[in-house]
């Protein structure tokens, strides 16, 4: 069957209609009004000026910028028959400094990892308030993987401070992720960064928060109360404009300061967050982010793309590694997914 069935077509048409009603016809709040509202209650609109090369050099004063990113790739499909490789990289803009790279492997098939899963499943189930909802080991394994990656990224970030003492570390994704997924390690990194005056900034490509509607609930029309930040902010900011969020009720809580930026011609926005203790520099850091972002790009600084390109464990690489270092018999027995042998 190579034609799209009419059933699927009409379902999608239906979907489209519903979304259109929700977002177009009933957004009875003008953009200007929304801007005013935000300006009054939540944050401050700031126009970013790109930093000139001289300004950047002055600000850095010989120190460098470090980008931190991690990558994760898994061979095998179903719990517990998979193996995951993790890799994190801290890369300095100074070409002479070789990147700091850390690796980790994780597989529920290995006894020590299975033990971790078992313990955490037990703990999480105990902590569960609703006793009917059971936490399954596969979920826990997923969480452990995320924590491992976060911890690995924090590790290379820490090491980069010790070794290079950079001016700024850019991390891929919100800093809150590290705080939640690897709390202890995160605390150590924060302390180290504050002690050495290293700025930490998280660059958030996909904004998943709903802080705006939460804080503006009383003033927004009913239909907009449920909206996420990315929906409300789409097209609201002009290019090179930023909203600096005030003290608001956010799940990021007390420790971080954040801002929304539109760095590109694309009407979507990105977010940045930095440590509360360093928030006085947010304007400068935002300007730097702006300067390093191609106007036609996807919104995040090119430096993170470069780091990402270097750290990424591609499927091809994964395959090569497994084929080279894992016995074929084991691979076939434990990890091979039948779906890969599909002909069509």
């Amino acid at each position: 069957m190579f034609e799209i069935t009419s059933g699927l077509k009409s379902l999608l048409k239906d979907c489209n209609q519903k979304l259109k009603e929700k977002y177009q016809n009933q957004t009875n709040l003008e953009q200007e009004e929304l801007r005013d509202l935000i300006a009054q209650k939540i944050g401050e609109f700031v126009t970013l000026t790109e930093m000139s090369e001289v300004e950047i050099e002055e600000w850095l004063a010989g120190q460098e910028v470090v980008g931190v990113d991690g990558s994760i790739n898994t061979l095998g499909k179903n719990y517990p028959h998979y193996i995951t490789l993790l890799q994190a990289l801290a890369k300095s803009t100074d070409r002479d400094k070789e990147g700091i790279i850390k690796h980790e492997a994780f597989s529920p098939l290995l006894d020590e990892d299975r033990e971790k899963i078992r313990k955490k499943t037990y703990k999480d189930n105990l902590a569960q308030e609703n006793k009917d909802a059971i936490v399954y080991p596969q979920e826990v394994a997923g969480k452990i993987k995320s924590s491992l990656l976060a911890a690995l990224e924090i590790l290379v970030a820490k090491e980069s401070i010790v070794e290079w003492n950079p001016k700024l570390i850019m991390m891929d994704g919100s800093l809150i992720r590290y705080q939640m997924q690897a709390e202890e390690e995160w605390q150590e990194l924060v302390e180290l960064a504050l002690k050495n005056d290293v700025f930490l900034v998280g660059i958030i490509e996909e904004i998943g928060t709903n802080d705006l509607s939460k804080n503006l609930a009383d003033d927004l029309p009913d239909k907009m109360i449920e909206m996420y930040d990315r929906e409300l902010l789409f097209g609201l900011l002009k290019m090179e404009e930023m909203i600096k969020l005030k003290e608001i009720n956010s799940f990021k809580g007390e420790t971080l300061s954040s801002a929304f930026l539109r760095t590109t011609r694309d009407p979507g926005v990105i977010g940045i967050d930095i440590l509360k203790e360093q928030e006085q520099e947010i304007d400068l850091i935002a300007a730097l982010v702006q300067s390093l972002t191609p106007a036609a790009g996807r919104g995040i600084p090119i430096w993170l793309d470069i780091v990402d390109g270097e750290v990424r464990i591609t499927d091809k690489m994964m395959e090569l590694l497994i084929d080279n270092y894992l016995e074929p018999g084991l691979k076939q027995k434990l990890l091979h997914a039948k779906s890969l042998d599909r002909i069509y």
């Binding site: 850095l60 460098e64 910028v65 070409r95 390093l292 106007a295 090119i302 430096w303």
Partner: peptide, 20 residues
């Protein structure tokens, strides 16, 4: 996306020359 000259220059000033 296309990497514009401005970004390449900014990157250079944080110490990284893309051309290399």
């Amino acid at each position: 996306s296309f990497v514009d000259q401005g970004v390449i220059e900014s990157l250079k000033s944080i110490g990284y020359n893309l051309a290399e």
